[in-house]
Amino acid sequence: MADFEPTIVAFCCHYCAYGAADLAGSMRLEYPTNIRVIRLPCTGKITPVFLLRAFEKGADGVYVAGCLEGDCHFIQGNLVAKPRVNYTKKLIQEVGLEPERLEMFNMSAAMGPRFAEVAREFTERIKNLGPSPLNKKNRNKTDKAA
């Protein structure tokens, strides 16, 4: 699976995780190009529908990154998001996808290095899991591998 480059969607909140991504860039920190960031006003905006759509469209992994717990700019958006992410893990499991393909992380806008670290670790995790069976781009490769 060495040649497998996963597509990973990262739903990042405007105030913290997106700021951290920005800082990682300013600090010239390297992180995998597999990450596609989608900015949300707050992780409280996330619903199972968004997360499922990402998988449906072929994402190999999806994560939600919000502010540190207790530091949400909308007070408790990240606390709303967390159980939704956990609930969606069950929904993707029902479909036959590994729940590890979905995760929630918390970081402040000052944590540029943490953003890069999460991006690296999560990419590694998804590489180990292999392509999502719904990723059409990688489907032929999976078929060959199987």
Binding site: P48, V49, L52, R53, L91, G96
Partner: peptide
Amino acid sequence: RVLSSQLRMA
């Protein structure tokens, strides 16, 4: 939307 998405994926 959730159920439809799940059914399509499965």
